[in-house]
Simulated scan of single mutants.
Amino acid sequence: MTLDPQTLLAILAMAVATAATRIGGLVLFGFLTLDRRQKRAMEAIPPAVLMAVVAPTALATGPAETIAAAITALAALRLPLLAATALGVAAVAALRAMGL
């Protein structure tokens, strides 16, 4: 298997851009003072991004995926993101096993 140098360069550039964005955000937040309302808004971003990425596929594939996406969205209102995601994975597996 060969790796095209341009492909490798693109992958490395994307990795650097991703790392720089994350580090920049952490540095920026060190200088900010957020009130309670702003903190809640920031905490809502990860589940919102997850649903924005997952929803198009979940709604276009089948009933098991659609139901599991709804379960995950509801769970994300109360549970940490990792727990809600794990619940969604378990739900889609169970629903597929039931034949949906």
Rank of each mutant, 00 (worst) to 15 (best):
M1H: 01
M1I: 04
T2C: 01
T2F: 02
D4G: 02
P5R: 15
Q6T: 09
Q6V: 10
Q6Y: 01
Q6M: 08
L8E: 07
L9N: 04
A10G: 01
L12D: 00
A13S: 10
M14R: 14
A15W: 11
T18Q: 12
T18H: 11
T18M: 15
A19C: 11
A19G: 08
T21F: 09
T21A: 14
T21K: 08
R22T: 00
I23F: 07
G24F: 05
G25E: 04
G25P: 04
L26G: 06
V27C: 04
L28V: 02
F31K: 06
F31V: 01
T33R: 15
T33E: 15
L34K: 10
D35L: 01
R36K: 15
R36W: 13
R36C: 05
R37D: 12
Q38Y: 09
Q38V: 11
Q38T: 14
K39T: 08
R40M: 13
A41S: 11
A41V: 08
M42N: 00
M42V: 09
M42T: 03
M42A: 13
A44T: 08
A44H: 09
I45Q: 08
P46L: 03
P46D: 03
P46V: 02
P47D: 01
A48L: 15
A48I: 05
V49K: 07
M51Q: 10
M51Y: 09
M51E: 06
A52M: 14
V54Q: 10
V54I: 15
V54W: 05
V54H: 08
P56Q: 10
A58G: 07
A60Q: 13
A60V: 11
A60R: 14
G62T: 03
P63K: 02
T66Q: 09
I67E: 00
I67V: 13
A69Q: 03
A70M: 15
A70V: 14
T72V: 08
T72L: 15
T72I: 06
A73P: 06
A73N: 12
A75V: 08
A76K: 10
L79D: 01
P80V: 02
P80L: 03
L81V: 05
L82Q: 00
A84Y: 07
A84G: 09
A84N: 07
A84R: 04
T85A: 15
L87E: 00
L87W: 00
V89N: 02
A90Y: 03
A91R: 03
A91W: 03
V92M: 10
V92W: 02
V92T: 14
A93H: 02
A93F: 01
L95N: 12
L95P: 04
R96N: 11
R96Y: 00
R96I: 05
A97M: 14
M98P: 00
G99T: 13
G99M: 12
L100H: 13
L100R: 12
L100E: 13
